[in-house]
Amino acid sequence: MSKMTAVQYKTKIEPVWCPGCGDFGVLNALCNALSVKEVDPKNMVFVSGIGCSGRLPPYVQSYGFHTVHGRVLPIATGIKVGNPDLTVIAVGGDGDAFAIGGGHIPHMARRNPSIVYIVMDNGTYGLTKGQASPTGPLGMKTGASPYGTVEPPLNPIAMALAYDASFVARGYSGKNKELEALIVRAMNHRGFSIIDVISPCITFYNTYKELPPQLAAIPADHDVKDRAKAFELALRDDKIHLGVFYENERPAFEDRLKETADKARGAGAPKLDEIFLEFA
């Protein structure tokens, strides 16, 4: 395969997103990363949940699966287990990831399949027109919370660290080069990587003005193997840190499954007829 440019990784389909939506930035960074990694599109699957962000797969030259709300991770796991040679990238919104789909994240962290999960985090439910999401701030006023929400937001990075996901990072759709680098690093990681990408919803929860002053790069001397330090950074409320919080190589799910199969097989693959004999 000859090297493809970022532009060549984009299909001709025009994204449905509102002009100025952070998701455009994510798509750009993704395609840049694919070009850097020289991924063969035929061996790549983009899997998504439901939401504005979930519309992404057909915009990338690859196989795609736009699934149901909150279930992108189990489906991505099935694809990876079905064919470990595929590059599997899961995408979706913060509602998809942390509300309806939140129950799957700890188990992805435990299993650790080599899947990159990009959460396009805008603090709101874009597709259903702006209700509060689990990462929206306390007191957020929306159509479904006219007096302000009464639930404080959850902290996706601290949560992923608590579950011991093996690669945990945060990016910002407005910092394209940095985001591209994060995606490349996540793709190089063997195991489950989660990148919480702040990707503002210009229409329902526009944070473009207030965000930049709060953002800070993770200090260059941060040891990504130090989970306790990663927690400290994640829990700081003066700054929103961007970069890799934590990275820890350990056996990937697809490798462990292969090991299990080798162990079970022992001397060689038994014929079905031999399994029958257990019942004679």
């Binding site: 699957v45 899997v47 699934t67 279930r71 189990p74 489906i75 796991t77 099935g78 287990v81 079905g82």
Partner: peptide, 11 residues
């Protein structure tokens, strides 16, 4: 979900 994914991948 896993079953859907595996089937999509051809299995």
């Amino acid at each position: 979900g896993v079953v859907c994914g595996a089937s999509f991948a051809g299995k």
